[in-house]
């Protein structure tokens, strides 16, 4: 059972990675990063490092907001 779950989250992470790569709009790319993070965090949780998961979950949005600061010029 566990292997299916791991596989599913792995696939989600890969989908996110490829979306990030293939899209060109920064917003779509950042959404791809969000998908990828969503796929990766369960791996951290399965290993039992919840405090690490918390920090990752908090720092990733911060990074995204940093990036959005530079993308504001290219609004649509």
């Amino acid at each position: 059972m566990m292997e299916y779950i791991i596989a599913i989250f792995g696939i989600i992470a890969l989908i996110g990675a490829f979306t990030t790569y293939l899209r060109t709009s920064p917003f779509d790319k950042l959404i791809g990063v969000a998908i990828m993070t969503g796929g990766v965090i369960p791996f951290v949780v399965i290993k039992g490092y919840l405090d690490v998961a918390i920090v990752i979950a908090l720092v990733v949005p911060v990074t995204t907001i940093f990036m959005l600061q530079a993308s504001r010029r290219g609004m649509r």
């Binding site: 990030t20 920064p26 790319k29 990063v33 791996f43 490092y49 990036m67 993308s71």
Partner: peptide, 20 residues
């Protein structure tokens, strides 16, 4: 620039998993 910078994030996530 931003395109490349966001792509770097993917590699960072990969390294994160390797460390994990």
């Amino acid at each position: 620039y931003l395109d490349r910078l966001i792509n770097v994030e993917i590699a960072a996530t990969g390294l994160m998993l390797v460390l994990l």
